[in-house]
């Protein structure tokens, strides 16, 4: 749907730039150091899962990727371009707000608490960014929004306001809203944590469908089942560092580090 080739079972296309590359990323809030040097790479077309106890910095890292948080040290690249800065020689220049906004168009984000616009219907929520940011015509945007709502199984709820939808439905509208900008990367910040258990499945189905279509996804999650089935890579974070990484099956079934073992024994 992004015009990219659908995902193959083999390695990503040759010579491709990593979709996300982090090198020694540090982030502090005041005196509290939340990220203490994160190094990782997300390949195009990959479903990349971040797990770890709360307060481990995984959500903060996710928010750094689209510059909702500024990093204090290290380098963070999306699709080969530096996030939030421009490098000339050995000097870094902060990007203007408008330039940051331009880059965010290509990165979709789904929040734990949905953050739908409550004064707009589901359809208007999905249409908003294409019309306002991309300058799409209302007719075009409406048509596309209806397709997306269809895709997440909510075409019949197009005229409903968020307050009239269940949590699971709201989250699926939020996914459709992010997809409407045709992003090349999707960030999921604990997308099912605020949902009633019986609603989690619908949202995970939509995410699974999205993964199969070849979307690059970075997912902060507590859904170990989803990580194992859909994930291509998995990183376990604790206290601001990457403790262990690898294929989800390996890390989840045969964790090497003691901290990973104790975390997994609590959640599995």
């Amino acid at each position: 749907m992004t015009g990219k080739l659908s995902k193959t079972e083999d390695a990503p296309p040759e010579g491709s730039v990593p979709m996300v590359r982090a090198q020694g990323v540090h982030k502090s809030f005041g005196h509290v150091e939340v990220l203490k040097g994160i190094d990782l790479e997300v390949k195009p077309g990959e479903v990349f899962c971040l797990i770890g106890p709360s307060g481990s910095g995984k959500s903060t890292f996710l928010r750094c990727i689209n510059h909702l948080e500024k990093i204090n040290a290290g380098r963070l690249y999306v699709d080969g371009e530096l996030v939030g800065y421009r490098q000339k020689g050995d000097k870094l220049y902060e990007l203007k707000d408008s330039e940051v906004a331009r880059k965010r168009r290509d990165i979709g984000m789904v929040f734990q608490r949905f953050n739908l616009f409550p004064h707009m219907t589901a359809l208007e929520n999905v249409m908003e960014a294409p019309v306002q940011v991309k300058g799409a015509s209302r007719t075009q945007a409406r048509e596309r929004a209806m397709q997306l709502l269809e895709r997440v199984g909510l075409a019949d709820r197009a005229g409903h306001y968020p307050s009239q939808l269940s949590g699971g439905q709201q989250q699926r509208v939020a996914i459709a809203r992010a997809l409407a900008m045709d992003p090349k990367l999707m960030l999921f910040d604990e997308p099912t944590s605020a949902l009633d258990p019986e609603l989690v499945g619908d949202v995970l189905d939509v995410m699974r469908d999205l993964a199969e279509s070849g979307m690059t996804m970075v997912v902060v999650t507590h859904e170990m089942g989803f990580a194992r089935e859909v994930g291509d890579s998995l990183v376990f974070m604790d206290e601001g560092v990457v403790v262990e990484s690898g294929h989800p099956r390996d890390v989840l079934t045969n964790p090497q580090h003691q901290r990973t073992q104790s975390f997994l024994s609590k959640v599995l």
Partner: peptide, 10 residues
């Protein structure tokens, strides 16, 4: 945050 994440200006 949601609006900014969609690429909307201030």
């Amino acid at each position: 945050e949601a609006a900014h994440a969609l690429g909307m200006s201030h």
